[in-house]
């Protein structure tokens, strides 16, 4: 289990996270939803340890930041590095020897081509593959479905469900509510740096309705569409 207690994060005077309290259990998929700028990426980066923060993130014994597989929203690929070399780099970083990569290549990527010349979706697939190869215990996926083709989206959902059955801790953020609805056991609504609602599967529609009802009608009216 991982517990986040009173997590605050500020950039200068701007407070992005205003006291997040969450707990994530093994064998559960947790979804984080919220509009752009709500603080999802900051929450993920703080969780991973890529940002300093105030508050506490308590890992169960045996887990640490080195058990985290983190997929950033836009994975950065170094230039002049092939897909295969990227996988080698990320596995080497975790002291993991990989066997026949070509055989294990779940998204059937052209691994002998330069990764920075991949399309957006292919870069995401490569970053995901590396995270799966690292044999992590905790998975942080920031917008994993964006840019992926339909088939890869379906494959990714199945992989996430497989990870859940292997008792891993999985946290996913996405703007695609339906995708989260299919895989998540619990969903948290992040707004203005705070978790304003959490729901189990049977109540996901409540979060969706809250998001939809925010002030959509007023915003549409303000557009003066004719």
């Amino acid at each position: 289990m991982i517990e986040i207690k009173d997590l605050h994060k500020s950039y200068g005077k701007k407070e992005v996270l205003k006291g997040i309290n969450l707990s994530f259990e093994r064998g559960k998929v947790n979804g984080i939803v919220g509009e752009n700028g709500a603080g999802k990426t900051t929450l993920f980066r703080s969780f991973a340890g890529l940002e300093s923060y105030d508050g506490l993130i308590a890992f169960e014994e045996g887990l640490s930041k080195d058990s985290i597989g983190f997929l950033p929203t836009t994975p950065y690929m170094l230039s002049k590095i092939t897909g295969l070399e990227y996988l080698q780099l990320l596995c080497k970083a975790r002291n993991i020897k990989i066997g026949n990569i070509e055989e294990q290549n779940p998204f059937e990527l052209p691994l002998n081509e330069f990764a920075d010349q991949y399309s957006t979706g292919m870069k995401k697939k490569l970053a995901l593959t590396a995270i799966f190869f690292q044999k992590n215990e905790v998975f942080l996926f920031d917008e994993p479905f964006n840019g992926l083709d339909l088939q890869s989206n379906m494959l990714l959902k199945d992989i996430i469900l497989k990870l859940r059955s292997l008792n891993k801790i999985i946290i996913v953020s996405s703007h695609i509510f339906s995708a989260l609805g299919e895989i998540c056991d619990q969903m948290h609504h992040l707004k203005g740096g705070l978790i304003i609602d959490s729901a189990f599967k049977s109540d996901f529609s409540r979060i969706e309705n809250n998001m939809r009802n925010d002030d959509f009608r007023k915003r549409i009216d303000r557009l003066n569409l004719a």
Binding site: P72, Y76, L78, A93, R94
Partner: peptide, 12 residues
Amino acid sequence: MEPLFYVWVNSF
């Protein structure tokens, strides 16, 4: 200077 991610990801 590689992005922070590439240093962070190391478990050493």
